[in-house]
């Protein structure tokens, strides 16, 4: 028997009749057409489906849509405002924080929570904060740099990203992962 679920996604309120077994990720992708949230592993491990619910990040493959009655959901589509990238999105752009891009929406959504809770994370805190998000391309080095870039620019309250801070090639050899 279908249940009516009413929730807000990226500022728009939606009401849909869904089967209780509909996972949040399927609701977002199939009911609302918000395909920025990816399905990676389907086993609650990879974090590609990460979204924010009432300010907390979660794996949207591991929650039923009916559980989120009245919730405020934010997906990757809701981050950029008026055509301007969120500082974390910009950070991934500047520091080449992605290759294939499959993990990126989840990685960015988790980074949003990470910087909300801890605006000045150390490298270790960043690595710990994204433990639930897997990337198979980058080795995480540039993802960590992207989040560091975002932390730095977010704290300066900078909304405009100057052209001069375009990607730089890091001449340092890559440090081993601790």
């Amino acid at each position: 028997m279908k249940k009516t679920v009413k929730l807000t996604v990226n500022g728009t309120t939606y009401e849909r009749d869904v089967e209780p077994r509909t996972l949040l990720v399927h609701f977002l992708r199939d009911e609302l057409g918000l395909t920025g949230t990816h399905i990676g592993c389907d086993t609650s491990q990879c974090g590609a489906c990460t979204v924010s619910v009432n300010g907390q990040s979660l794996k949207s493959c591991t929650a039923f849509a009916v559980q989120l009655q009245g919730a405020e959901v934010m997906t990757i589509e809701g981050l950029a405002k008026e055509g301007e990238l969120h500082p974390i999105q910009q950070g991934f752009w500047e520091m080449h924080g992605l290759q294939c891009g499959y993990c990126t929406p989840g990685m960015i959504m988790q980074s949003v929570q990470l910087l909300d809770r801890n605006p000045n994370p150390t490298e270790e805190e960043i690595r710990r904060g994204i433990e639930g998000n897997l990337c198979r391309c980058t080795g995480y080095q540039n993802i960590v740099k992207s989040i560091q870039w975002a932390a730095q620019h977010k704290n300066q309250g900078q909304t405009e990203i100057p052209e001069a801070s375009a990607p730089k090639v890091d001449p340092q050899p890559i440090a081993p992962v601790p």
Partner: peptide, 9 residues
Amino acid sequence: IADPLVRNM
């Protein structure tokens, strides 16, 4: 326990 996302729930 698991990872930060899982621990939120």
